[in-house]
Design a protein around this nucleic acid. Structure first.
Lengths: 199, 199
DNA sequence: ACCGGACTGGGACGGTCGACCCAGTCCGGC
DNA sequence: GCCGGACTGGGTCGACCGTCCCAGTCCGGT
């Protein structure tokens, strides 16, 4: 019998849940499936987590916390121009979706579920707030670094960026058309870059 | 006891299911919830439908069939320019989402579910194909009517349009920010109209 | 008028779900 | 060394799920 602290167990269950969510979807994300993935007994679940919903909340919150966009920062480091940066960022995002489709799909399922669940609805709203914040910061940073400016509030452009990435993801998840997705990523980059002016 | 033919019963169950899906979400779309909404007994369900999944398939297929975009055609009739038409169409779509948010959210949930279900995955793909077709036809029609042309294949631009509407919907569903959604709709229209040239 | 097939409703079956209880086992601090 | 609290696993509960069965009811065609 492996004795694990509540803290560690929560992390193990959290990680197991994320794996199950990505692999099998939200509908299959039962407490039993999670503990099986984590190699624990069912009782351990409710010892570490008060309820299944609490864990789902943790997953949504982890997005809000910001572990997700870590990868994008690196892409922008070695960009030679803001045009290059935006194009690279969108291409990198597309790669991320293609590398782990289940993960993105799982996040969509989870967000939709959260929006239907009164207890979790606030978290879903915060999740999108966070998305928009991150995108806005990115745009601001870009303009700053290359001494350019955006012709619209970055808050609005950020919303455009997130809409484009969400839409890109949904379309690719539905038809898995790589070539079309790449062309769309290019169009999306253009759509954003239209609003970039000289300073 | 009301005696109803199988055909009529399927339609009644279908309509009831769509209502439940919009109001309570996919997770609550059980056979019992459907027959309760339709005012039938549980056995009637499996008399009309072989399985719950068959009904879900019907709902997705109805989108493919094209009942959804009927409203958009009217909007374009009295447009004075393609710019006007695109802006109106996106505004009308946003209104549609705001009028019946549950409906759009239900469709997202259903599409995600279909993508996870081998039997239904093909339908979800066809659903997006249909979206893209409708958008492409719309763009073609617009260019034709006003004697203009698009600087990129309408198939690609259609994908951009659908991505923008999907993204717009998801963002509004998450934060219900009307003003931001309207600004985004305007940005989205610009993004598409950038590719419109004189002929 | 009646009969066979279309249709109905109630009830039941096996399964999965989230949650929980409890008797036991381990280990750190005294 | 021993004891109390942290931790474990197995079993169980009630609810809900999709599906099915079956005895009954109605109606159109003959």
């Amino acid at each position: 019998m492996a004795r694990i602290s509540v803290t560690d167990r929560r992390e193990l269950l959290f990680a197991a849940a994320v794996r199950v969510l990505a692999r099998d979807g939200l509908a299959a994300l039962s407490t039993r499936a999670i503990v099986a993935e984590a190699g624990m007994s069912l009782a351990s679940f409710h010892y570490a987590y008060g309820s299944r919903e609490e864990l789902l909340g943790d997953i949504v919150a982890s997005v809000v916390g910001g572990e997700r966009e870590a990868g994008l920062a690196g892409v922008l480091g070695d960009a030679s121009s803001p045009e290059d940066a935006v194009r690279r960022a969108l291409a990198a995002y597309l790669d991320l979706v293609r590398t782990d489709p289940g993960r993105e799909q799982g996040m969509f399922e989870l967000t939709q579920h959260a929006l239907r669940t009164p207890t979790l609805a606030r978290l879903a709203t915060e999740q999108y707030q966070r998305y928009h914040e991150v995108a806005a910061e990115l745009l601001d940073h870009l303009a700053d670094r290359f001494d350019r400016r955006w012709d619209s509030p970055t808050a609005d452009l950020a919303r455009l960026v997130i809409s484009l990435t969400d839409g890109l993801t949904l379309a690719w998840l539905a038809d898995r058309d790589d070539a079309a997705a790449e062309r769309l990523a290019a169009l999306a980059a253009d759509a954003v870059l239209t609003h970039l002016e000289d300073s």
